[in-house]
Design a protein around this nucleic acid. Structure first.
Lengths: 254, 254
DNA sequence: ACCTGAACACCGTTCAAGT
DNA sequence: ACCTGAACACCGTTCAAGT
């Protein structure tokens, strides 16, 4: 009677109220978030969370049914960090602010992205965030089906942009680590030679790529990513505004 | 002297040529892709790949340094599936086709998305694909820095859109599995009650969300996702065209 | 009701030993 | 050079036993 690990969601299961316990879900989730922020997915184990709470791994299962549950709770926890300003009247500015807030949160908690990918998102904070966006667009006068398309256009952009930024940063870190490792190791010189040979060959075969890579070496990754993020965001908002004026255009099927 | 698991990349390390071996990297990668397609990340273990090849797990380490290496190779393998049409003269059409091809590949191999997230992408197919896009934009007359912004706008959109589609589909599958599980289990009726109560409460608190969720129940997920994908793609292409005409506008910092 | 401690099944990875 | 078989350290999860 193995657990299929994909049955439902924490949020769809009952949760016993406390009695005389030393732990609580909130504490456990807090520790999980801290560990994830510090050491990422690899750092998170039930044993580690437990020991950080001065408790045995097995006892966590009194509060949480699986590790997956814990991750689902952690995700919703950080989704709650995204603040919105309901006072903003201009829908484009409000939507942009929402997108930026979302992006910043994902950059703060790099592990959260992976959870977003893997998990259906049924936590209260996820729902509240979605509602905020939808209301925004509805108040701006978007037709029903257009609201969905607009919302997902923005959200997809946020997610995609954060992914590429994070993987860019990671790859820089990995490269420099590899360089250090090669320097410290014994036969490092040869394997370093292999690497540079490979990269030179790539550069020869792909001139445009080589040019762009050489250019991006000089710039700051974060500000460059922000620039790109804002550019595409602007494109999307303008596209939304255009289809907003030509009402119903969006939902017409080919 | 533990392996930090983040030192370099398969592509940056030497690879011994064959002699009298029964296996090859290509075979191993093929099996890995098959397993991943069938059972996802959870299904992939070194022991499984090995046994599928009639071999012991340990022997794989003769061809591949870590499981991470294997995943990196598998990712580049499927990236090679994306076909491009160099004959297409119109850059908007060519770029759109590239985006669609990319999207379709990611939907065929749902596990690949996760790899894209986690890994710097240094394989030959990844580079070739990037070069294709960059050349396209360069030939269209985009300024250097604009090429980067344009390319990542499109790529980010593809990745974001696929992520949301996959997680949507997954959540539907999970929900129906949960319903089946609840029906089969003993106390299923109660936990089902908990779930519906929670969802009803969410619907009450978030009227707009409830409306949209009710509406999307009727439609086909795949075609709806495709519609949204095409809409945002159109927005982005139009934005790119506009900034293309107003040359240099894109790169101006605030 | 809650927590411990030990166990189970499963990982990725290593390595002496074979051929 | 390549492969086996056993081992190591580490998982998530379960469960009898305690309190």
């Amino acid at each position: 009677m193995a657990l299929t690990d994909s049955d439902g969601s924490v949020w769809l299961r009952p949760h016993r109220p406390p009695r005389d316990r030393q732990l609580s879900r909130d504490q456990i989730v807090s520790v999980a978030v801290t560990v994830l922020d510090a050491d990422g997915h690899r750092g998170l184990s039930m044993r580690r969370v437990a020991s950080e709470l001065g408790v045995t791994a097995g006892s966590l299962y009194w509060y949480v049914r699986t590790k997956d549950d814990l991750l689902e709770l952690a995700l919703d926890r950080v989704l709650g960090e995204v603040r919105t300003d309901p006072a903003e009247a201009d829908w484009r500015r409000a939507l942009a602010a929402l997108a930026r807030g979302n992006r910043e949160m994902l950059l703060r908690h790099r592990w959260a992205l992976r959870e977003l990918t893997v998990r259906p998102n049924l936590g209260p904070n996820a729902f509240a965030l979605a509602e905020t966006g939808l209301q925004l667009l509805a108040r701006a006068g978007f037709a029903d089906a257009d609201v969905d398309a607009a919302m997902s256009a923005i959200n997809d952009h946020v997610v995609g942009a954060v992914i590429s930024q994070v993987s860019w940063i990671d790859s820089l870190e990995r490269m420099s680590e590899a360089r250090i490792g090669a320097g410290a190791g014994g036969g490092g010189s040869w394997s370093e030679h292999v690497a540079t040979t490979y990269l030179r060959e790539v550069a020869d075969r792909h001139p445009m790529l080589a040019r762009r890579m050489a250019a991006t070496r000089e710039i700051d990754v974060e500000s460059e990513c922000e620039r790109r993020f804002e550019f595409a965001l602007k494109c999307l908002l303008e596209g939304l505004a255009a289809s907003h004026d030509a009402a119903g255009e969006l939902t017409r099927r080919p």
